[in-house]
Amino acid sequence: MKFGVVVFPGSNCDHDCYYALSQVVGVETTLLWHQERDLKNCDAVVLPGGFSYGDYLRTGAIARFSPIMDSIRQFAQAGGLVLGICNGFQILLESGLLPGALLPNRSGHFICRFVYLRVENNRTPFTSLFQLGEVLKIPIAHNQGNFFASSTDIRSFLDNRQVVFRYCDSRGEVTEVSNPNGSLESIAGLTNCEGNVMGMMPHPERSAEEILGSTDGKKVFQSIVKWWEEKEIARK
């Protein structure tokens, strides 16, 4: 299996994702330059965090016009696996690959800290190694992670089990206090209807090694690998 990590000007977690995938998870990984159209036969694409185009205008608003996004759109429509982390999530929303929007944090400023997440759906390619209801410790680092959508949309996300992660406390309770940014329904991660595109605000690449304080993020990447390998075996 091969991963591609997209590099937009202003991405700053591209190297971190590359390291976590290639060195920690140990899967073949390549960097994809935003001006190219070739996905280099990657089986999964990661849109990393950072500040593409400085977040000028709106987060993700300019990056979505990059040539590589045309290819990623086609890839996703064909069922390809796409994971957007933080700014990558924002780009997926601006591109229409995921529904909803991210508003500025309720506190009005940037927040960098470890948070807890509860796994709401473990039947996605991104969570197949987790138990339902499992509590993960993964850090956030963002200015605009306050998930917003119309109440009808939110209802349908819940009904379709598109909500994959919700912010919770260390015991797995979803409370007002455990919601770091004001996201509706404490949504921290969301897939599209088909389940092959996921966006999440927390950073799995920052919690992929014991020395960084958690290995829960590593399992997000490993889930993708497992899901893909099982599909390959089935196909053969």
Binding site: Y53, G54, Y56, L57, I62, F65
Partner: peptide, 14 residues
């Protein structure tokens, strides 16, 4: 005005 410059460049690209 760095935002203005970046947005102008993006408009040129479009």
């Amino acid at each position: 005005d760095p935002q203005g410059v970046t947005i102008k460049n993006a408009l040129h690209n479009l």
